[in-house]
Design a protein around this nucleic acid. Structure first.
Length: 451
RNA sequence: GUGGGUGUAGCUCAGUUGGUUAGAGCGCCAGAUUGUGAUUCUGGAUGUCGGGGGUUCGAGUCCCCUCUCCCACCCCA
């Protein structure tokens, strides 16, 4: 016998978890579409050269790749942004710009598993391609804010930074060659102490004065305006740095004007990671109640990603929600729903001779959009109720011989511990109307075209 | 990928210096006068003690290998 098992970093999902995942994906879809992002999909496998084209040595090391049966070097996508770059390079003449798309799909990375970090995980990306307008950057922030709230989060923080800020600062002092090392060092500010970071900055090759200056910026606690003033002084008259400061100032200002609470959008020069294709704005989203899980939604502006695949100038800006990381967090925070069935109404199986009437009623209810399940055998009522209870099915319809003769149905609400009767006619109209009110009253506004 | 830790019924764990048929709580299943869950009462099932190898008269308890999950690094959703 073969032992049933799965690879490290890969997971099975039970109905309860899958229901939760789908709910999150539905929410992401709804929010993205509310801003006008359109859905797309791309293949899981791409030519290796497409995926490793932008790749650093690190992404190449993490990428799953192999030679296919036809001898072609093939890779499994490790994010959705690189395939997007290939996609727009190939189709931009059909789709036109600005192009706003979202993409919800699994990606693969050969990394060691940890909580909220898996080898197969789903990303929910949204991007705007073909415009340099800061309004697209602003929209990214608004979408993230809206999305997190729609998912049920209140206590989160969108941290924003700009690649040109630090790069400009370094360039102004002729130290731009240390950029990568500086970013890596300053990024540790949250975990390691200031002294360690300072030491690393110096070790990377910065003069102590400059290292101190950068550390000051990273450690600044207060409103974003304060950091911006500090930053403005630090970058001096270097055009790159000034651009970064100006962008940030405008973005933060307009986000506030658009209703994002000021303590939710903070300038943090220590967020510097992410794939190295970012060239402008960078954002990360932290859960204030579970910072250890890392960023659950990260993104930024990348102005020359598609350049690998086309001569056309196709700047982009967008972000990616880490569905699985977010779910791991929600589990830790006790935010997961306990439903393990989509069924809204369980129709109990009482009388074998009424079998066809039950089936007809079930489809009458389904016809108005209800999820209705008919218990597959005339088991003891106790067992059928327990079945519903364990799966958190909210309502059970009971029609035995008594009810059938009296032309009424008993409706038992398990969570409310109440039971009522509803008239039962041949077309099931009363029951349909009853459940329509119960299940759709709040979520669906009156549809006047049906009147 | 590197380093450290972990692994006992579905879940959370207990298991004395290696010694007879491995336990608890929760959960699960069944019953408590014939059509009512979640509460209560009664009864019941369940583990090759992660897997493989070794030491020993004898190992859940010691050693080695391997897998898993967790933590740190790396990197990042």
């Amino acid at each position: 016998m073969i032992e049933p098992r799965i690879l490290s970093g890969f997971r099975d999902f039970l109905p309860r978890e899958m229901m939760q995942r789908q709910a999150l994906m539905d929410t992401a879809r709804r929010v993205y579409q509310s801003f006008g992002f359109a859905p797309i999909d791309t293949p899981t496998l791409e030519y290796l050269e497409i995926l490793s084209g932008k790749g650093s040595a690190e992404t190449d090391r993490q990428m799953y790749h192999f030679v296919d049966n036809g001898g072609r070097p093939v890779g499994m996508r490790f994010d959705l942004t690189v395939p997007l770059a290939r996609y727009v390079a190939q189709h931009i003449n059909e789709i036109g710009t600005p192009f706003k798309r979202y993409h919800i799909a699994p990606v693969w990375r050969g990394e060691r598993q940890q909580r909220g970090r898996y080898r197969e995980f789903v990303q929910c990306d949204f991007d705007t391609i073909g415009t340099r307008s800061l309004l697209a950057d602003l929209e990214m922030i608004l979408v993230i804010n809206q999305l997190m709230m729609a998912l049920g989060f209140q206590r989160f923080q969108i941290r924003i930074n700009h690649r040109k800020l630090l790069n400009g600062l370094l360039a102004q002092k002729g130290l731009e060659q240390h950029s990568v090392g500086v970013l890596r060092a300053i990024d540790k500010l949250g975990k390691s102490g200031a002294e360690l970071v300072l030491a690393e900055l110096i070790q990377v090759g910065l003069p102590e004065v400059v290292a101190q200056e950068i550390l000051q910026l990273g450690l600044y606690r207060g409103d974003s305006d304060g950091v911006l003033e500090l930053a403005e002084r630090a970058v001096g008259d270097h055009p790159l740095g000034r651009e970064g400061v100006a962008d940030l100032r405008e973005l933060i200002g307009s986000a506030k004007a658009a209703g994002v609470p000021s303590d939710r959008l903070v300038l943090d020069i220590s967020i510097a990671r992410g794939l190295d294709y970012y060239t402008g704005t960078i954002v990360e989203t932290q859960l204030l109640d579970l910072p250890s899980i890392g960023s659950v939604c990260s993104g930024g502006r990348y102005d020359n990603l598609a350049r690998l695949y086309t001569k056309q100038d196709l700047p982009g800006v967008g972000a990616s929600l880490g569905l699985d990381r977010l779910l791991a967090a929600m589990e830790d925070l006790g935010m997961v729903a306990d439903r393990s069935s989509p069924t809204q109404i369980l129709l109990a199986f009482f009388e074998p001779q009424l079998q066809w009437d039950y089936l007809r009623l079930a489809s009458q209810l389904r016809a108005i959009g209800l999820n209705v399940e008919f218990y597959p055998e005339p088991a003891k009522l106790k067992k059928q109720l327990k079945y519903a209870d364990q799966r958190k099915i909210p309502a059970v319809v009971l029609i035995g011989s008594q009810e059938w003769e009296q032309k009424q149905a008993a409706v038992k609400w398990l969570d409310r511990e109440v039971q009522t009767t509803v008239p039962l006619s041949a077309d099931g109209s009363e029951l349909r109307e009853y459940f329509r009110r119960e299940f759709f009253a709040e979520s669906v506004p009156l549809n006047l075209t049906n009147v």
